[in-house]
């Protein structure tokens, strides 16, 4: 009987990992605060690739003047403080430790990489919205912008709730 114990434990661990993945989503959903983000149009040919929509947010790029630490040369984890303006959230500043936010502000964890001169590219893990296969056509219009509602947890993780194509230009 003792011999069997290891594999039961192993299966339980794997099940726990799967619960963990789901749990981190529902945790964010439960504790998180909903914010609205605007996207920028991506290269039209890239918008819809197979089973997901690529999203490029306004907050995906930031001038590196918002970053006060050592110059970023390679991918670095950063914290991005966001504040609302007319209902949409924009970048307030970037920090390298978890920042204090109050009121309507929130922060997201991101990976910063240098892009053009004086600019940083930020990846939040929110860049893909998976859709059912072959239902992505409606997202395929070139130059389409979206407003995306995201729940942001107090620990800096965000999950997408829904994406809405913007009709007004």
């Amino acid at each position: 009987m003792k011999k069997n114990k290891w594999w039961i434990a192993l299966i339980l661990l794997q099940v726990l990992v799967l619960f963990g993945v789901a749990g981190s989503y529902y945790g964010v959903n439960y504790f998180g605060k909903e914010i609205q983000l605007k996207t920028k149009p991506v290269d039209p040919s890239d918008v819809f690739s197979g089973d997901y929509v690529s999203l490029n947010y306004e907050i995906s790029d930031a001038p590196d003047s918002l970053w006060k630490g050592k110059p970023i040369k390679e991918p670095t984890p950063v914290y991005v403080v966001l504040a609302p303006e007319n209902g949409m959230y924009h970048i307030k500043k970037l920090t390298n430790g978890s920042p204090d936010v109050s009121g309507s502000q929130v922060y997201l964890k991101a990976k910063a990489t240098p892009s053009m001169i004086g600019m940083l590219h930020l990846e939040y893990g929110l860049e893909r919205f998976y859709v059912e296969e072959n239902t992505g056509k409606k997202f395929e219009k070139p130059g389409q912008k979206f407003s995306v509602s995201v729940k942001v947890a107090p620990w800096g993780k965000g999950v997408i709730q829904e994406i809405m194509p913007e009709t007004t230009k």
């Binding site: 299966i11 993945v21 989503y25 893990g125 860049e127 999950v159």
Partner: peptide, 22 residues
């Protein structure tokens, strides 16, 4: 098959919840 389905589950759950890994 169990190991394969564990991997498939990780990927499918990631897609279900729109997680992107880098």
């Amino acid at each position: 098959l169990g190991i394969a389905s564990f991997g498939a589950s990780l990927i499918l759950l990631g897609q279900t919840y729109h997680f992107v890994s880098y």
